[in-house]
Amino acid sequence: MLRYLLSRSLHSLLLLAGVLVLVFLMVRLVGDPVALMLPKEASAEHRAAFKAGLGLDDPLVLQFWNYLAGVVQGDLGRSLRTQQDNWDMIMERLPATLELAFAALLFSWLVAVPLGILAGMYPFSLLARLAVWLGFAGQVVPSYWLAMLLILLFSVQLGWLPSFGRDSLVSLVLPTVALGFAIMGQLLRLTVAVVDEVRSSDYIRTARGKGLGEFGVAGRHLLPNVLIPLVAVSGVQFTYLLGGSIYIETVFAWPGLGSLLNTAIQDADFPLIQAITLFVTFFAIAVQLLTDVFYSLIDPRVQHG
């Protein structure tokens, strides 16, 4: 286990270094952020002084060295636009993103697991048809379209839910559904497939033969089987939710990391883009590592050596 962890950590470090170099170079390919920051009337002299003040006129190698030295010491730099500490800005926005990501994941589990198990157990029922339909819809409906549809229906037409912002638990509902719908679709299909596979296996038949009821079978035998792949997929999806909710956060004016990254990209705020990307990558790697460990705990067949 220890060797496995060490090797995984080394891989993670290499991955992190790769992301660091790539993002550093990519953001600089797009041009000069000072052009967007200063008023158009700003003089050449002010532009030069402003740029020098931000360290953007140093040679690229020196800029990278300074950046690397900062990162190694845990300093993610300062935003060009707001001149605030990037770490502080990320920490300010992280709770909103985590809240939405957990809510979306919870929503997808709450729908996918019970519905998937029931649909798997009763493959010719109406529920099974609903599950097929929902699973399919989750995979094909674009989240931006769903987001607009939800706002139009539940906010504008019915007036039940707020269309934007992070004011109370109620305002969490629409972004959660919009964000979690696709994952729900994936988990639902997965659950149905797993249940379908195991429900006719020998040990299930034995369990039934011992007189265990359908709910007992589902709870004690099907669920543990379903959990293993679900945890693995959810780990991947969770990291996707952290970095991939840019659109949903922007549409619902949700003040999380995604909307911060969107603003940073629009403003060519290099240090902030770098900081968020690095942070999300680090977070994703950590979550993956934890998922793997957890996976090995719930599935004794997984051996690391």
Partner: peptide, 18 residues
């Protein structure tokens, strides 16, 4: 002042009186 970057969401929010 509420930050609402998406124009469709701004429209929905003013229609609902938010």
């Amino acid at each position: 002042f509420r930050v609402i970057p998406d124009v469709n969401t701004r429209l929905a929010a003013v229609r609902t009186g938010q």
